[in-house]
């Protein structure tokens, strides 16, 4: 007991000493910490303009308070239901399609024989991940062009006539958005599962073989349980990001014909705040804050759910 007290008091007395001993580390951290305070927490502090009527001449702190007026304005706007619907439809559709496909891809690839072919498939399917959103959207426009693209060529070959313009039909927007993402990210997203699958204990497979299990049964009872923890963590992250749709790509894919199907919260924030002549900083900050808060809540809920169900979470 006495000995323990001595240790504790020593620990307290030496905290200052221990910090002093590491002064060089604090010095090194000075710039990164200053950076994060200014460029990440600075804008967070700026969120107060969501509750003000921002005026350029008065600045952030002297602009008058308006309470929740900006939020009310957004919720009562005629665009609100359309934007919410688009955001939810596109993000859920995205999640339902782009979450399981890489898992299936990894499982199939793991079953396949032939090392070289396997390696080749992996290498080629990573490449689209490095295509920037600008080029990706340019590529989509070109490939699905009804005159000069693959779609146009195939349509003409089959019917002899020029096909209808895909981009003029707004209801197709979500399909183009989601399936082009499948094309672009499946290979990359599968890496993490492929890595998890290489850690499967091979003796499990041998034992299952002796018991007469088929390959499909081994996938079902050995491979799938192996990647389940990884998958649940990826799912939490995906759910926590559900409202952060690939904003750059959506913005580039928008045109006047599909706007009723393609306007989402983040593109609307950009337009209200920066792109239109209005430059209503307060309103757009309120909208983006609404989005961030929903996201944050979803993340907490998904994490809590995952901890309850599988015992693993990200925090």
């Amino acid at each position: 007991m006495a000995k323990h007290d001595v240790v504790v008091s020593q620990g307290k007395r030496t905290l200052k000493k221990r910090m002093l001993a590491r002064w060089q580390l604090y010095l090194l951290l000075l710039i990164p910490v200053a950076y994060i305070l200014i460029f990440a927490y600075g804008p967070m502090a700026g969120l107060i303009i969501a509750f003000k009527k921002y005026n350029v001449r008065l600045g952030i702190f002297d602009s008058p308070w308006v309470g929740f007026d900006n939020f009310r304005k957004f919720f009562s706007s005629y665009k609100f239901p359309i934007i919410m619907k688009n955001t939810i439809v596109i993000s859920l559709y995205s999640l339902v399609v782009t979450f399981p496909i890489p898992i299936i891809f990894a499982l199939l690839l793991n079953c396949m024989n032939g090392r070289i072919y396997k390696k080749m498939i992996q290498t080629v399917t990573y490449i689209p991940y490095f295509i920037s959103s600008v080029v990706m959207v340019g590529l989509i426009f070109q490939i699905l062009d009804n005159r000069s693209g693959i779609y146009g060529a195939v349509y003409k070959m089959l019917t002899g006539t020029i096909g209808p313009n895909i981009f003029a039909d707004g209801s197709l927007f979500k399909h183009i958005y989601v399936w082009s993402a499948v094309w672009q990210t499946t290979g990359y997203s599968a890496i993490i599962y492929i890595a998890a699958l290489t850690n499967v204990d091979q003796s499990l497979h041998e034992a299952a073989l002796i018991d007469g299990a088929t390959r499909l049964q081994r996938v079902r009872y050995i491979d799938v349980p192996t990647i389940l923890p990884t998958a649940s963590i990826m799912l939490i992250l995906a759910v926590g990001n559900i409202m952060n749709i690939g904003f750059e790509k959506v913005l580039l894919m928008q045109n006047n014909l599909n706007l009723n199907y393609s306007e989402i919260i983040s593109t609307y924030v950009y337009k209200v705040g920066l792109a239109s002549g209005l430059n209503d900083f307060s309103l757009s900050t309120a909208i983006s804050m609404f989005n961030s808060v929903i996201n944050f809540i979803l993340l907490i809920v998904a994490n809590w759910g995952s901890k309850k169900l599988s015992g693993s979470g990200i925090f």
């Binding site: 994060i36 460029f39 990440a40 804008p43 967070m44 502090a45 926590g240 950009y270 705040g273 983006s288």
Partner: peptide, 15 residues
């Protein structure tokens, strides 16, 4: 923390 919550594009622009 900044990974999960941020100020958004408008306030960053003002900064």
């Amino acid at each position: 923390f900044t990974m999960f919550f941020n100020g958004g594009i408008i306030t960053t622009y003002l900064l």
